[in-house]
Amino acid sequence: MGQTIIDVKDVTFHYHQEATPALSNVSFQVKQGEWLAIVGHNGSGKSTLARILNGLYIPSTGSVHVCGIQLSEETIWDIRKQVGMVFQNPDNQFVGSTVKDDVAFGLENNAIPREEMNRRIEWATKRVKMDGFLDREPHHLSGGQKQRVAIAGVLAVQPTIIILDEATSMLDPIGRNEVIETVRELKNQSSLTVISITHDLEEASKADRIIVMNGGKKFVEGTPEEVFLLDDKLVEIGLDLPFPFQLSKKLKEAGIPIQKHHLTEEGLVNELWTLRSKI
C-alpha cells in the first residue's frame, strides 16, 4: 500500500441538532491503492461517513483530510475533484441518451476539450468492458452493465478515490459479481483507491480491510479474516456472515478437517477437493 490518502480524526456528525449523533468520534486512515469496505446495518452511520468523505456533509467536530486537503466549506470542490462516487440505483444516475453521452457528462461539466473527452470516454469504457455499447440507450442495459457505465463515468474524470455507496445492493447476483470483479481489476491495474459502503459481508470479504460500523461508532477494524473471527458478535449487530464462512464453520463442527474458515466459495471448494483426493 502507498501513503495515507484519507485521514479521518475524531469525526462526529449530527443531523439538524439531533441529540444522538449519526457519527461519534470516528477515526481511521486509508492508504493509496487500498480497497476499504465500510459495513454495517441500516442506521449504522456508514452512508453518512461516505457522504462526508465526498464533501456532501461537513463534520460537526473532528477533521477529514483527503489527498492532503482538509475538508471545509472552502475546499469542498477541491475534494470532490479527487473523489468519485457511484450510488445505489443505477437508473437514477443516467443523464445522457446514450452510454457515450452519459460518460461524457462529467467531462463536459469540467470543460474538458472534445479531443481529450473522446480519448477518456474510449479509455474509461474499455476499462469496464463497455466500449462496445457506446451508442446504446442506458435503459436497454442490464443492472450490472448500468453500474459499469456509472463507474466509467466516474473513471473518466480521473479521480484518485472511488466510493461505491451500496452500488451493488439493487443488482442480481450476476450483476453484483460483474461490478465487484470490475472494481477488483481496476484496483489491481492502477493505484486507484476504493471505498465500498455495504451491508453485504460477502462483498466486503473481497476488500483489503474492513471497518464495521454500529450505532454511529467504529465497532471493529481489520482484515476480512480478522473481522470474521468475531463471528456471532457480527450477527448480534445485524450482519450476515458470508455463506462460505458459515459453511466452513458447520463442516468443522461436523468433524470434517477444514483447516480454515473460508471467505470465498473457491477457497472452500479447493480445500474440500484436496481433502477428497487424500481419502
Rank of each mutant, 00 (worst) to 15 (best):
M1G: 13
G2V: 06
V8Q: 02
K9T: 14
T12F: 02
T12N: 05
F13I: 11
Y15A: 11
E18G: 14
P21F: 09
P21I: 11
S24N: 15
S24D: 15
K31E: 15
Q32W: 00
G33L: 06
E34I: 04
W35K: 05
I38G: 10
G43R: 01
S44T: 04
S44I: 07
R51D: 05
I52Y: 00
N54V: 05
N54G: 02
G55R: 01
L56E: 07
I58F: 07
G62T: 11
T75E: 08
I76Q: 13
I76S: 03
I76A: 02
W77S: 13
R80Y: 10
R80A: 08
Q82D: 06
Q82S: 13
Q82F: 00
V83H: 01
V83R: 01
G84W: 02
M85H: 01
N89W: 03
N89R: 06
P90G: 04
Q93H: 06
G96T: 06
G96V: 07
T98V: 08
D102F: 10
F105I: 10
L107E: 08
N110A: 15
I112D: 03
I112K: 04
I112F: 11
P113G: 11
E115D: 15
E116L: 14
M117R: 15
I121M: 12
I121K: 05
K126E: 15
R127L: 15
K129T: 11
D131Y: 13
D131W: 11
F133N: 06
R136C: 13
P138N: 09
P138Q: 11
H140P: 00
L141G: 10
S142Q: 09
S142A: 10
S142T: 14
G144M: 06
Q147D: 05
G153F: 11
G153W: 10
A156H: 09
T160L: 12
I161C: 04
I163V: 14
E166P: 13
T168C: 12
M170A: 14
M170H: 04
D172R: 08
D172H: 06
P173S: 07
I174A: 11
E178C: 01
T182N: 07
E185H: 10
K187S: 14
Q189R: 12
S190H: 09
T193D: 05
I197D: 01
T198E: 03
T198C: 07
A204K: 04
S205C: 10
A207P: 05
I210F: 08
I211Y: 01
I211K: 01
M213C: 09
M213I: 09
N214Y: 13
N214I: 02
G216F: 01
G216L: 05
F219C: 08
F219N: 03
E221N: 12
E221I: 12
G222I: 08
E225R: 12
E225W: 00
V227Y: 00
F228N: 02
F228L: 15
L230C: 02
D232V: 11
K233N: 13
G238S: 12
L241Q: 06
L241D: 03
F243V: 12
Q246H: 01
L247C: 02
S248I: 02
L251V: 04
I256C: 09
P257W: 11
Q259E: 15
Q259S: 14
T264G: 04
E265G: 03
E265P: 00
L268M: 10
N270V: 00
N270W: 00
E271W: 06
I279P: 00
